[in-house]
Amino acid sequence: MLVVVDYGLGNLRSVKKALEKAGAEVVISSEPSMLEMADGIVLPGVGAFRDGMENLSELSECIKREAEHGKPLLGICLGMQMLLTESEEGGVYEGLDIIPGKVVRFESKGNNRDNKIPHMGWNSIKIKENHWILDGVEDNSYFYFVHSYYARVASSYEVASCTYITDFSAVIATKNVVGTQFHPEKSGDTGLRILHNFVRECRR
């Protein structure tokens, strides 16, 4: 059983349905006991960093503890950004600090009309490292992105990158914790492949 963390934001239905399509049994919950019971945790996310962290509040410790114990954890978009140490979105705010790194805003260069923000649409990723989350995903595959801020992490945590205005992390990972800047639940069959890989890892 997988838990999609409900912290009051966003379209959770799509994440749930896509995980089910990828073969999982899914519960949407904000109960620490459910997170403890789960085989894996998905931290979805749209919206602002500060609101997201505020809404997580006491769940933060639970998520960190479960991740430290080796439970698979997948952060999507804002959910990925919240895995990091801090964000500069609307001030400086602390994240979960599961993966060391920082969330920064895209700086539009020159004529910003050629570099629109948000970065919105399908972009290709460059695979840097082998990781179970990318099993069966070809280099240069397309995924759906929507974001104005991006993650800056040490290269040892970056398993795939993307280029828009600058090079940034598309997928970050440790052994059991993964973050995708794109929305796998909105990236068609390739996105479902990522979710399938996560579901498989949760069964191990």
Binding site: S14, K186, S187, G191, L192
Partner: peptide, 11 residues
């Protein structure tokens, strides 16, 4: 929307 979102995984 519900029936579409259950089967179609694009925005």
């Amino acid at each position: 929307i519900e029936r579409t979102a259950d089967e179609v995984f694009i925005p």
